[in-house]
Design a binder for these strands. Sequence first.
RNA 1: GGUCCGGUGGCAGAGUGGUGAUGCAGCGGACUGCAAAUCCGCGUAUGUGGGUUCGAUUCCCGCCCGGACCUCCA
Length: 458
Amino acid sequence: MPELVLHNSLTRRRERFVPLDPEHVRMYVCGPTVYDVPHIGNARPAVVFDVLARLLRSLYPRVTYVRNITDVDDKINARAAERGEPIGAITARTIVDYHADMAQLNVLPPDIEPRATAHIIEMLTLIERLIANGHAYAADRHVLFAVSSFPQYGRLSGRSPDELLAGARVEVAPYKRDPGDFVLWKPSPPDLPGWDSPWGRGRPGWHIECSAMAWRYLGETFDIHGGGSDLIFPHHENECAQSFCAFPGAQFARVWLHNGMLRVGGEKMSKSLGNFSTVRDVLAEAPGEAVRLLLLRGHYRAELDFTAAGLAESRRELDRFYRALDRVPAAAGPMPAPVPVPVMAALCDDLNTPLALAGLHALADAALAGDAQAAAGLRSAGALLGLLQADPAAWFRGAGDAGAIKAAIAERQAARRERDFARADAIRATLAGQGVVLEDGPAGTTWRRASTGEGAGQ
RNA sequence: GGUCCGGUGGCAGAGUGGUGAUGCAGCGGACUGCAAAUCCGCGUAUGUGGGUUCGAUUCCCGCCCGGACCUCCA
């Protein structure tokens, strides 16, 4: 088995991955807050950790991948009020949208997708434990985590408690003992979601849900916790604090992985800046597989500029891969080939997807030269990355009715036989204007839809 | 202001203490009626100034530039 190395945010170094239980690898990834359709930045962790889950499944006998849904949150409440729509309707619809969009990107469902609202009991249990352990206190119908009770606070984000306090720009609520204390539970008025608790009707703070759901499904200590780098502070720092203090002696997540942010025009893509594209917008411009490839063309920890040019380039790369698969029909056979070593080695090296893709290009070269084994390897390597599983014919020509195109091709063939090249070229130009590219080969003429920016009519 | 990350050819993007992958684009050639695709070949890069070293793009320091986090954010 190849050795898997991962960069651990907690130690800031690359470490050999050693699962707690080699028979059962456990991973938790922060999922979406469901108040709006997902944007392409939300898709990056989904895709990145989907690749990791696929890799882990190929390396270990059993993997449990948990990705939560946050369905209680002030942003959701605000959206509901603003639109005059019931909270449940917004979250239900957004979850459907999220699943649909992720499926378009070939993101497989996680093994467990728990919702925060279904785990209030676990949250309350944790909060009571924290109070009992002296790490939390009730004040003014809130329950707060006492940062000063946890000397290691700041370890994950690499900050000292003093720094964090000095940098606290948030308005400090009067009931906080310490400006850095954060809310575990807060009161909820009748018009907002709320649950009965020892401190009155209330709802959870942001961070406690992940501690609760990770505990519920993966235990006090598990292998991997993932999410966007913008979650390191405060979200993951606070999760760490809660879980460490609720379960003294346990390690919570042993390896922390964080994906870099997407950028647009050199700036982070974010809701607050308003510079985001929804997954839907992007899917109107390019196939989901091209979007996925674009997200994997950079290393997951690096920032990635999201550009139309990059998307078009990804599509052309896929054209070549699918051409290679098309060249050797055996590649579509039922027997999955082993993933070629260079690709596996690259992925095991802290998920180096750009290097793995270079390996795919080498396989494509060989396949185009007629190497059926390389084509089969390309298909397997693609499967590990969540790519190249479509029928090449579908990739190039889509599902629409091609009768008119085929008729035009037949007409052009007749003109060519009569050496009426002016006529033949005119037909080809007409098709090109419709975004159809012809390729004359020894076995006849084939056609495909032009990629973005290729040829006329695009 | 504090903390952290990064600056590689036209663009995207890896690796590496010993003259730098891969892709896209470009150029030349083969193939083609012409194209497309494919194949062959070509070109251009390690921000900057020091240091360590036999030797640095790779390690260390300064500087410049870009970005992230410190507040909701994937």
